[in-house]
Design a protein around this nucleic acid. Structure first.
Lengths: 180, 180
DNA sequence: CACTTAACTGGGGTGGCACCCCACTTGTCA
DNA sequence: TGACAAGTGGGGTGCCACCCCAGTTAAGTG
């Protein structure tokens, strides 16, 4: 990649990050290009689809989440570790406007972030299943989809955390039981 | 309302129903007007916002769901009744493209459908809480949001039903327990 | 250094959109 | 039947995604 191309690429990415944070996944690509100081054609050349731009923007942050999953994979309580990570994921999605929408339309075969999260979360889940904290008939895609769903339906970290916790624990029982 | 106005209103509604089923909540309003055989201004006069059109389109169907809730409010097993209804709601949202998006952006004070569902679901929930089938610290908005969230994140009735069931039961325990 | 060339660029075009204005049409009622 | 308010839609504005192509520039060569 030529030096000027790389410079433009980075500028577009920075502008996209700011604009997506403000306006969500359907931010104006024209405005991103304008803010980055490049023509819209340049943006479209570097990122042929909206999806590819979103992936690039969120890649680093998703990596942070995955690193957290790797840390948690040696935690004492696998069930609690998984629950906490899913909560983080949903909160992250709800507060990082656009990530959830991006994940929703991600084609599994194409999406880099999707694969990373599946791998990281899958490890946590299997450990929790091994200890019996999580049912054996649950798939990692189900859990990611639920966390993502909550992200889509909330714009607030507190709501996202509460709803994921609710979905993890279930609605049954006489009162909120925070553990197990 | 004048006779010709009513005719146009109905034609717009019919066209909107077809188009939204095909393209979801962000269907082209211009195309709906074209299909209805009216000018776009007429559509915008009858429905000042996209949201108001979506509400009108889904109103009848939401009413059906609410009627179902009223039937279920005398069911023998309140917990199972609530779970079944939430599953229906999510499936309905997932398969009726656009409803979930519409609910997401609904302003509670303004939204007719939102209020109807809250009333209908609230009754079911309180009964389930009275029998101890559902925790006392759960709010109806939480349940509606979770069902809506699942609708947003799935495009398939089977997936929607499975995920709502998962969220209702929780992910804990050694295996899938269908009764709850 | 000058020169070549392929990678790279962005202004401007196309077609589509939401939403609005206003001259015109039509249902309604005295 | 006549008057008029309610209702209409063509066309305008400003925004968007996406593409084309003539011009520009970095990078490699003698």
């Amino acid at each position: 990649m030529r030096a000027d191309a790389k410079r433009n690429y980075d500028q577009i990415l920075a502008a996209a990050e700011a604009e997506i944070a403000r306006s969500g996944a359907d931010a104006s690509l024209e405005k991103i290009a304008r803010d980055a100081g490049v023509g819209s054609a340049t943006l479209h050349r570097h990122f042929p689809s909206r999806q590819s731009l979103l992936e690039a923007v969120f890649h680093d942050r998703v990596e942070v989440l995955c690193a957290k999953a790797r840390e948690l994979s040696t935690a004492a309580d696998p069930g609690r570790a998984l629950a906490g990570w899913l909560r983080d994921l949903a909160v992250f999605g709800a507060t990082t406007r656009g990530l959830a929408e991006a994940m929703l339309y991600a084609t599994p075969a194409v999406s880099d972030c999707e694969v990373m999260l599946r791998d990281a979360g899958g490890t946590l889940m299997r450990r929790a299943q091994a200890t019996g904290d999580v049912r054996a008939d649950v798939a990692i895609d189900d859990l990611l989809t639920v966390a993502n769903a909550v992200s889509l339906a909330t714009r607030d970290a507190t709501d996202a955390a509460r709803l994921v916790t609710l979905a993890i624990e279930g609605i049954g029982g006489p009162a909120g039981h925070s553990g197990g």
